[in-house]
Amino acid sequence: MLDEAENQLENGQPWMNPEAPVKNCENFGTERDVANCPFFLKTGACRFGDRCSRKHVYPTASPTLMIRAMFTTFGMEQSRRDDYDIDACLEHSEEELQDSFLEFYDDVLPELKSVGKVVQFKVSCNYEPHLRGNVYIQFDTEEQCKDAIIKFNGRFYAGRQLQCEMCPVTRWKNAICGELF
């Protein structure tokens, strides 16, 4: 599917994310679900972390892998130094961000494909600390995701140790905001 998306984009055609299966329970993962944290279910991360009043259900099996804070740019690093200075990243253009992403994509994707078929590859460019630089990789099977965790967890990339975990994201449409590539 990722190859199909790359071919369509190279030919100037638009690409839409495939829809994931819908869960049976109507309120599960929504703000009306009083037990489970909807933000954690949508993104695999919650701004309240361990202080959240709702449950964070970590999946025991999932085709989606999340690597926390793997993608960084100069603007993201500047905002990390001072989360209250919203002007820290204004000195960098969208073109520089796009170039950084493409360089990252070309560097990382072949290594991820060595584990198995990559269905989705998403990078969060959100400046919120709990989402900043998170990389989401949806593999074709849960077994490939497990193999990726074994292979990549604890390795180093760009001077930082990778933190890999299975991600509960089931619907990309709900998880994606305007700041994801």
Rank of each mutant, 00 (worst) to 15 (best):
D106I: 00
P18N: 10
L102A: 04
V123M: 04
N174Y: 09
F104R: 03
L102T: 04
D33G: 01
N153P: 10
D99K: 13
P110I: 03
Q78S: 09
S79N: 08
P129T: 05
Q120E: 14
I149V: 13
Y136A: 08
K23C: 14
A158I: 06
P18G: 04
T170N: 11
Q8L: 14
L162G: 06
R155C: 14
V57I: 15
L162M: 15
V115I: 15
H56E: 02
N11V: 00
G159N: 05
E91V: 04
A148I: 06
L109G: 02
L180D: 05
V57K: 09
K173N: 12
K146W: 05
N126F: 07
K173D: 14
C177M: 10
N126K: 13
E26A: 13
N7H: 06
S114R: 13
Q13I: 00
K117C: 12
F101S: 01
A5C: 06
C37A: 09
Q138F: 01
M16D: 10
E77P: 00
P38C: 05
P168S: 03
N24V: 11
F48D: 11
G44F: 01
P21W: 03
E96F: 05
F101E: 03
N11R: 13
A69D: 15
V118F: 09
E142T: 09
F39Y: 12
H130A: 11
E26W: 12
K113S: 09
A5V: 11
L2C: 07
S100E: 08
Y84D: 08
S100N: 14
E77R: 13
F152E: 08
V119W: 00
N24P: 00
I67D: 05
M166K: 13
H56M: 13
T170P: 00
D107C: 09
P59K: 03
E94V: 09
Q138G: 01
